[in-house]
Design a protein around this nucleic acid. Structure first.
Lengths: 348, 348
DNA sequence: CTGAAAGCGCTTACAG
DNA sequence: CTGAAAGCGCTTACAG
């Protein structure tokens, strides 16, 4: 380990070197008006010379606002979480904010208290919520009370007073279902995801609606309950595929489950897509890595995270300037149906 | 958005309610000795009654130490990054630390300055580094100078003065290679990863050594240069498999590349494992999701992250108590060869 | 065992 | 356009 290090320069050191008051230094670093150019450059020179870096905790304490944005997330898979954070970092970096991450066990009895402790101790500038935390009423309530700006990614309810960012998951599953119907499929199996996730309801809803429009109804015996995982995709699909009246197509609620369904087909020697079509949802990397690659719907996760960060930064700006009466921002991004080799015409 | 909120209780409010000095409240919340039990419980009651939460920035400023641990990471894939952060959070939570994440573009010209700004502004309590940042000398130098405790995950050099946590990647690839040789394979293709990652060198080294021990040498024409991605795995494997003297086995530097190699085999109609064995590295979820599932080496990423956090917390403790003369901690965790269906006896 | 004072490095509110 | 004073909510160093 390193030995003790020399003291870091403070605002006073800069002020002394530049022969101004600390308030003037403060003005320069916060880009406030009312500083003569001569003075400003003198201060800036002093800052570079000393290698001055303002202390975040001092700024937070004095200014009563931190530069930390929280990401509250749950079990949505590594790729999703990673992409969300990537997108947020893209925006936070330039805005001078940092990202603090918190994995939230959304069904723990004390989520509310834990969230409250977090928010109050850290006094976060803002929070981004992703599924399934995005729909946790206890946590939303804590943020609301604390007056912390937040934005919800992929929430359950679109009609709401909170800022949200989403794609139209309902419509996306309709697109997927339409695609299968157009290929001639009539008996379509459906693999549901975890109950706690809004996506589970939305995706199933779109499926049913698309069927209904074509005068079809979902066969109850072809609907299986999984948990968004490869393992549940495998077992659920197995049950469907050993039926004498097995489906000619399976719509899985996400790519991982679709990969599991694909494995079940492989096990049972059912050729995909000749005898069975399979579609996923999300277009995660896994969708292109399995064989055959999956037809799926692309969710622009990174772009969604960037949009979420943009909204959040705007809300923080509003709060700092005391504007409470603006409309609640929300945005819906476009999804894309990605056709790959896992789907084909219905057999015979 | 929410309206302005009431002021949060401070240490003085607690002190007033409990009829003690703020110093005593401070003692209680920091679990310092020298407080009578009666007084302690009186203070605790006041804290709960007010819903008191100490301000992190005030504690950081006054105590000259933050409660933020940084994770500096690069492009290692979503799953790896996610698992590392999961493991770290497991430990940070209980210790009262929070995780701040920073994606570092390890080959940017100004990494040094950016890292310095980060470390000095946030005054992080400690930093965990993962590949490829873990081997960036500029960043290591910045941390060293700033006196910030850090721990490196999966670094290139094991003989070093910095705390590290790793598995024996060299030996792991030897195990993988031995496994193939034992199955009768002699012509083994190798897919290398990105040059900037230490893993690339280490894994190739283990491969060569294992071959050498069996009196074999790597065929130069069977070594391909990829970038740890599915796409490069696919193209590299294609080149190998269209050779008249194609290998009977392919060792990919990670699971994603192995998945790509598998796809190449599928494309070319080469049955796996009958005509071609394929092995990966890491045992990420993808390894079990492809068909056939991959033989690979499991790297206990979450456990490594937990161990890294443990080491870091210990270093922080040492620093706070001024102990600079202890031995540098380091740990090596065990890897496991996971045999799945992608490997089999060499053909004929 | 407990507390009064000073200070951490900034910003806010005000004065000139 | 610039600055002196007070204060943010804690901890440190010291006194009793």
């Amino acid at each position: 380990m390193a030995p003790p290090h020399p003291r870091k320069p403070t605002i006073s050191d800069v002020a002394a070197l530049a022969e101004v008051s600390i308030k003037t230094v403060s003005r320069v670093m916060n880009k406030e008006p009312n500083v003569r150019d001569v003075v400003k450059s003198k201060v800036q020179r002093a800052m570079t010379e000393l290698g001055y870096q303002p202390s975040l905790s001092a700024r937070s304490l004095a200014g009563e606002r931190s530069f930390l944005i929280g990401h509250f997330y749950g079990d949505t898979g590594g790729q999703y979480t990673h992409d969300i954070q990537l997108g947020m970092l893209n925006r936070c970096r330039d805005a001078g904010y940092h990202l603090m991450i918190e994995e939230v066990v959304y069904d723990a009895p004390d989520v509310g208290e834990r969230a409250a402790a977090l928010v109050n101790q850290v006094r976060m500038a803002g929070v981004v919520l992703t599924p399934p935390v995005t729909d946790n009423p206890l946590i939303l309530d804590v943020l609301q009370r604390a007056g912390v700006p937040y934005v919800r990614v992929a929430p359950d309810q679109n009609i709401d007073t909170s800022p949200i960012i989403r794609i139209d998951e309902w419509q996306a599953t309709r697109d997927l279902t339409d695609h299968l119907i157009r290929l001639g499929h009539r008996r379509i199996g459906f693999l549901k995801g975890k109950q706690a996730h809004a996506a589970t309801r939305l995706r199933y809803g779109g499926f049913c609606e698309a069927l209904a429009e074509h005068g079809l109804a979902p066969a109850p015996e072809l609907v299986e309950y999984g948990e968004f995982s490869y393992a549940t995709g495998l077992t659920c699909a197995r049950r469907l595929l050993i039926r004498p009246d097995r489906p000619t197509a399976i719509l899985a609620s996400n790519d991982e489950m679709a990969a599991g369904a694909l494995a079940a087909a492989h096990e049972l020697g059912i050729p995909v897509p000749q005898q069975l079509s399979i579609v996923g949802f999300d277009d995660t990397p896994i969708a292109s890595m399995v064989w055959p690659p999956l037809t799926t719907v692309r969710q622009p996760v990174i772009a969604m995270a960037e949009a979420a960060a943009d909204i959040l930064l705007e809300l923080i700006r509003r709060k700092d300037s005391g504007q409470w009466d603006h409309p609640v921002p929300h945005r819906q991004l476009d999804h894309v149906l990605v056709e790959r080799a896992s789907t084909g015409p219905a057999p015979f």
